[in-house]
Design a protein around this nucleic acid. Structure first.
Lengths: 233, 233
DNA sequence: AAGTGGTCTAGACCACTGA
DNA sequence: CAGTGGTCTAGACCACTTG
């Protein structure tokens, strides 16, 4: 609350949350209407609304018009994952970021890449492989395909100086992004690039972006052993 | 917008977003005050505020009192990961969920576990190992430590019937949760449990929860090969 | 058809923080 | 200390969805 006894939306959220925690409302139970809660707690309905939206975002309750607000029977953990540009990630660790372009060619995309882009037919694509370094040691290597139909300008960019990652983020915002994370074993080439041994377990991060329906880029990044994604709630 | 030309907050968000995309406001630039935007767009300030909060949540802009709203110089991708209870995850794939308790003992927590819990000294802990199955095949195995100081009741629960995962979610809500994801190679025991070969790359998910300052549980789950985490924006 | 959440408004005051 | 975002209110209307 603020000054005296007036409840802010966070306080309201805490009250409602507490009622769920103590079992006053159990999984599946219906909570009172916003208006009733507002009257009971002595605040405006909009304040209850704000609190409820937060709880719904967090996955604790479900809200439906006319249906009312119910405690989720099946709780989920919702975590916000922040995926920065690699340069920032490296620098945030206090390391010096390095970057090496290891391949650049205009090529035909294989079916797997087209599938990731949800594209039926592949136009011209730019394929880029690059290695990111932290304090001179391999950090992440990426294998990227960029649609030259969607982003023709990139053919003229010097990707040896600025990574495709950063150029795209700065110049080609996306409207949709698909992310996938899984574990893979390092192949021969990847092991060499990352200076690890073949068969080492690596975190693979796949990201595909679109602007409208048009695919921009799809990238498969492999992080050095020991790499962790973290989130906190 | 709704009926005629009145803008809802999503429309306002789209307008502002578009201005950033077209470069009208570049990285680091300051946007007009909410009030000015409201006047310009013909809506209430609260509507602009709603739109702006969304853009800030998405990582596109940064807002500070008195400082104003600025386009983030260093864009991040923010993805919401949903981590359901394993049973739900399996059932959502249309498979039958199975569960086997493979170990249960009261033990002393090793330093690594205490560190994850941010606990200086370890009280009594319950250690539980379990295997989750999807259609009878190994899906995820977990190695869990539960603080009996924080959750004494669990010593009386039959964890052969209900997984600790579910019991805790249902009975012991947390106030804080740390998540970590990384890739590891399967050890001998893990390979046997998951019916894969030693050295296979597995996704490891670590989760630790607290209620207030008191640690509840920490778990390290290993998913079978091929497991993917997905998110979409 | 009616109930409930979602959104909008106009105005007010508060809280933070940069100049 | 003044400017800007954050929140609260009271009331209105809308949109969805369930009985």
């Amino acid at each position: 609350m603020n000054a005296e006894g007036r409840l802010g939306w966070q306080a309201v959220r805490a009250r409602i949350h507490a009622r769920v925690l103590t079992g006053e409302y159990g999984p599946g139970d219906r909570l009172p209407r916003d208006e009733d809660l507002a009257a009971e707690l002595g605040c405006a309905r909009a304040t209850v609304q704000r609190a409820m939206r937060d709880l719904a975002d967090a996955g604790l309750v479900e809200r439906r018009r006319k249906g009312g607000t119910h405690v989720r029977a099946d709780p989920v953990t919702r975590a916000v994952l922040e995926i920065p540009v690699i340069r920032s990630e490296v620098e945030a660790r206090g390391a010096v970021h390095g970057y090496r372009l290891t391949r650049r060619e205009v090529a035909e995309a294989p079916p797997a890449v087209l599938a990731r882009m949800e594209a039926a037919e592949g136009g011209r694509m730019l394929r880029v492989e690059a290695l990111h370094l932290a304090d001179g040691r391999p950090y992440i290597c990426e294998d990227r395909w960029i649609s030259l139909d969607t982003v023709p300008e990139i053919e003229a960019v010097d990707l040896g100086r600025e990574s495709a990652n950063e150029w795209l983020v700065r110049n080609r915002p996306y409207s949709r992004c698909d992310l996938g994370f899984h574990a893979v074993e390092a192949g021969e080439g990847e092991a060499a690039l990352l200076e690890t041994r073949e068969g080492a377990a690596l975190m693979a991060i796949e990201r595909t972006t679109w602007i409208g329906e048009a695919p921009i880029t799809t990238v498969r990044a492999l992080a050095r052993p020991g790499y962790q994604l973290r989130a906190r709630i």
